[in-house]
Every structure is written in structure tokens, then in C-alpha cells.
Write a protein that binds this DNA or RNA. Sequence first.
DNA 1: TAACGATGTCATGTG
DNA 2: CACACATGACATCGT
Length: 399
Amino acid sequence: MGINSVQANGDSSTGMNISQAVSHNVSLQDAMASRNHHDLRRDFDLMGSEQSSELLQSQSSNLSNSEMLLSVSNLTAEFFPLIENCTRNVSNHNQLSGFLDEAVFEQINLMGLCMEGLDKMLEEHDSDSGLSINSSSNSPESPISSEMSSCRSFCEDEGAVGYSIKAEHVSWDGVEGATGGSKVCCSQYNERSPVCAYSVHHDHTYNLPSNQNISTFPPSDVKWEEEDIKTNWSEDIDLTQDERRVRALRIPFSVSEIVNMPVEAFLDLVSKYDLTDAQVTLIRDIRRRGKNKVAAQNCRKRKIDIITNLESDVEKLRMQKDKLMKERCQQSRSISTMKEKLNALYKDVFSRLRDDEGRPVNPSQYALQCNSDGSVIVMPHKLLAMKQKSDKRKKEKKR
DNA sequence: TAACGATGTCATGTG
DNA sequence: CACACATGACATCGT
């Protein structure tokens, strides 16, 4: 296999393969995302839309020879079986086209929007690689392109919320999911709890009727290659249940986009696109739960912060209390010392005092009275008590 | 296997 | 009234 075998498919699938090859090569850093892009292309082409062929052909025709050579020559051996797989599916094109009705073509148009956005994203994301995809879909005059840019703008607005290019990859491979992976997943749904058997996280229930859980597109009687389903199964293991549900209902937006887009864009999405009740219910649920998940995380962080701060406050107050207790003990000791000194001084003074007849003064009958002017007089206890009472009365009268 | 922490979700209240 | 956000309560999962 090589360049020749890729180019040998001279129909509309050629453009798809080369475009895929470029996309795949450009985003090889993220192998999973590339695979999803590839599958998205395949899914898109399977729908039999002339739009898709034209779009893809124009993309491939806009590639310069050097770009094409570089892209194709860099393909890994892993990629070629995918191309084979892809062309095999494309060969079913005519069979599938019989299933398509107008509603399906609406879906195809929706997919077209996604494809354009994906190409733009790949071009922007991989600008460092030195490759450029001069896709006509990126032309500013394309109405579809402007639609997609509006879709993407609300995602970029939410960068602070954790939105990333990586999430975009997840988002757009979400579009392709209804090929094989969703069939596997949907087969595990039940009425109350549409949960896949390989549940990774929690079992979240929805109020969707069981018949709404399964997408009406592609037609249920389309048979997929066994190998194809296995491939998609292995990829789906890494997806969240919501991402699988988004795939299953063919919603052209990723979980992160649904959650993070501003309310205006979200309402616009709900009204602008002709979404089914099941799709609207799902994206509203995803948005509500996504918002609440972040809120719960913030709430818990806040709670931990509050507890941490309170523990810090408790520790500070404990230290302050210890300090005050020490100060109190020190003051008490100081007061005791001063009382002892005062008593000693009192005794010393009385031991030296003598009455008019030269006899010692009895401290149980007399007391020392210190006046405000600094003078000290010896008074009988009774007289001192009377004087204190009269002083008290004078103070009360002054008030 | 019980205990426990982390996380997602739901129900409800508030702005 | 619809929405975002906060939070308690509960379920589930992993250790």
C-alpha cells in the first residue's frame, strides 16, 4: 500500500480518503481524535450526500502536491487498513442511499456543519505542524462556515472553565458515533436507565422513553461490518455515558460544548436546529448536570476552604487564649507579691508606731488612712468606717 | 468485607 | 418564569 493505492480510488471517495489522510496525518499527535475524524468522514460519506462529496473533493483539490505527498507519505501502517475499511463502507453508498429521506438529508446538512468546523479546528490546532489544509470550507463566504464559527466562538469564550482543544476533538468525534459504537451502546439501554453495560461511572437515569433513546438514523437495518463494530467498541470504552448518548442521538455538539456554551448560544442551538424532544431533553440534562458538577466541585472546595480557615482561626484563638492565661497567672503572682509586700510594710509601720504615752498601736483597733495629698494618718477602725460612709454619701450627692 | 473519601447527581432554595 | 448557582443528601466507586 502507498500513495498509488490511495489515489487509485478515483471517485468521490478519493477526496475523502486523501482529506482523511491529511487530517489524520496532521493530528497524529492525538491518535484517538484522528481516528474519530476518520470515522466521521466515513460516516459522512456513507450518508450519500452530494454536499459531502463536493466538500471533500474541494478540500482535496485545494491541497498542494507537496502537501499531499507529505501527508500521504507520512501515513503510518496503522492507517491503511482504515482506508480500506473506509472504502469498503463507501462501496455500500448506493445501497444506503435508498434509506435516505428528507429528514436524513437534514441530518446530513447538520453533519456538513460539523465537518466544516472540524476542518477549521484541525487547521488551527495543527498550525504548528507546518501543514496547511486549504479547505474551501474555510472560505469566509461560506454560510455554513459562519455558522460553525459561531458555534465555536461560544466554546472559546469558556476557556477558563476548562474547555480545551482536546475537548473539541472529543466533541467532533461525538458526531460520528452513531456508526457502530452507538449501536453497540444503545443495545444496552433499558427503559428507565439507559446505561451501557460497560458503565464506567455512575448510573444516571433519564426520563426518556426507551423508543426515543435509539436514534432513527442511520436506518436500523443497516448492517455494519463486525470488525467495524469492534473497532468502535474499543474506542467507546474511553467515552463517558453522556458522550455515548450524544453520539446515539446524533447531536452535533460535544458534552463540553453543551455544558460550557453561554446560555444565549445554548438557547439559540435549541431553537435554531430542528432537534427532537429526545435530543433537547438530553442536551438540557447534560447541561444541567455539567453545570451542577462544577458547582458541586466549587462548593466542596469552598467548604474545605471554610473548614481550613476555621481550623486556622481556632488555632490562633487557642494560642491567644494560652497567652492570656499566662499573662493572667503572671498578674496574679505579681498581685500576690505586692500584697505580701504591703502586709509586711503595714506590719513594719505599726511595729514602729507609738501612741501619746509611748505604747505600741494595736493594728486590730487602728488602721492607716492614705489621703489623696499623700499624707498618711492613723485612725481607729470605727472612725475610718464612718468617714468612708460619709465620703460615699458625698460622692452620691455630687452625682 | 466494612469503612471511608472522592465524586456525580438530584432536589431544593435563593438571587 | 427561566436560569445559574449553592448546598444538603444520597448513591456509587475505588482504595
